[in-house]
Computed example of a mutant assay.
Amino acid sequence: MSETNLDAADAAAPTSIDALLESDVDGLLDAPQKPTKVTAADRLERAFLEVVEFRRTHGRVPDSTTREIAERKLGARLDGILANEEKIAALKPLDEFGLLETPEAPASIDDLLGDDELDLLDDESGLLDVSDLPVRKAPEEADSVAKRKKCLDFDRFEHLFKTKHAELADGTAQIAQFKGLRTVTEGRFFVLNGVMLFVAEVGETREMIVGGKPEQKQRLRVIFENGTESSMYRQSLSIRLFEQDGQSVVQTGLSDAEEILEGDTASGNIYVLRSLSDDPQIAQIDNLHKIGFTRGTVEARIKNAETSPTYLMAPVEVVASYRTYNMRASALENLLHRVFADVRLDLTQADRKGRRYDPTEWYVVPLDVINQAIHLIISGDIVNFEYDRSAQRLVAR
């Protein structure tokens, strides 16, 4: 009986390897599959899909500045992708929420502030309201608008501009709103379209007939810091300063009526600080500055800086200070923060109690560029510029 069964089994057994594999309906003899190699493209897609999933779940993009570590990591990942055109092109098919779309540059100051959903930059003082300013006129061809020419003795004046810039940097001088024709006097400095100028001479008064009426005019010798000069009329310079949002350069704290007029209201102080920290991770950073605003004095604001995380738990040095009048200085401060957002200090520290914190309002940017940005914001021209972190300067968009 047993022999008969064995013969039957032998008869049913496969006669070749191929037949054996074909009879393996349960796949017991299948060779294990080798794992597929994960490529860099696969890792990039998986990383981006985590960002997409965050957007789907929370209805917003992850914030790279939040204290929530997981979200901050995703936000930083998205920032890195947006900085690389090749990654953007590779991930476009997976971008169901338009996370990789590049916003158009704002065409005006209104567009720049248009996304201020929390109304943080509400212009209560009318700093940015130009509706009441006179309409800019086309330049006149007559002598009322003199042509600029090269200043052949500019070496006589160059040191004056360097001194004035140094005063602006150390806070002994400041930029103020232009106060009108009566302030256009010999020896005064002004800023026109971001260029500083010096009134070197005021000529004799001449009576001229303008529009059928007699009018007294004085020729000026105006020296510009770019090495040119002009002999425009005193009234013409005043008109240009008004129409093109020019500013005066005045001594800080001076109460003379020619500098700060009666009825002007001080609105606060914009200040720029340098850290005196001996912490190696702070001390080794060149051009690290804090841009802040206070309604009181800067000295009171930075008192006991070494005990405050806001000031990196170390003493600070004031390298520039601007007293602002008849304007909302906090709006100016916020605009500066926007201009330099790409170079904000990314650092986590611990205070004396061991609590972790991320300092804000600290930026890695040269002081002269901060000063230039302030002038451009006041003039409204900042919408035409952006900060180039590699070149460390403001460049045209």
Rank of each mutant, 00 (worst) to 15 (best):
S230H: 05
G211Q: 12
A300V: 10
I239F: 10
G171C: 10
L237H: 15
R301M: 13
T252G: 04
L220S: 04
E186C: 09
N193T: 12
N287I: 01
V250Q: 08
R182I: 08
R221Y: 12
G212M: 08
A300M: 15
F190K: 06
E186S: 03
L261H: 15
G253W: 12
S275T: 08
T265E: 12
G268N: 04
F178T: 03
G227Y: 10
T205S: 13
H289M: 01
Q247S: 05
A266R: 12
V195H: 14
L197W: 06
I209R: 07
I175P: 00
Y233W: 15
K213N: 09
D279F: 01
Q216F: 09
A200K: 15
K303G: 05
F198T: 00
K290M: 02
T205W: 10
R206K: 12
V184A: 06
S277D: 06
T228M: 07
D278F: 00
Q218Y: 09
L220I: 05
E299Q: 14
V298G: 06
G227T: 15
S277A: 14
E258L: 10
T294M: 14
K217W: 06
T172D: 14
S277I: 07
Q251H: 13
V298Q: 11
Q251Y: 11
S238K: 09
L276A: 12
E259P: 02
T185D: 01
P214Q: 00
S230Y: 07
D264E: 13
Q251C: 02
E215I: 14
P214T: 02
F198C: 00
V210S: 09
F189S: 02
V250E: 07
A200Y: 07
G212A: 13
V250G: 01
G296Q: 15
A283C: 06
T297R: 14
S267Q: 12
F178G: 03
G212Y: 04
V272C: 09
F189L: 06
A173V: 00
E204A: 11
G246W: 06
T172V: 02
G194N: 09
S255T: 13
G203E: 03
K303T: 08
T294A: 11
H289A: 02
F224C: 07
A200P: 01
G296D: 15
S230M: 03
T205G: 05
N226T: 14
S277Y: 02
T265N: 13
V202G: 04
G194A: 10
V199L: 04
S267I: 02
T252C: 02
R295A: 15
R301Q: 13
S248K: 05
L254N: 14
S230P: 10
I223T: 03
R221A: 02
F178L: 03
G194V: 06
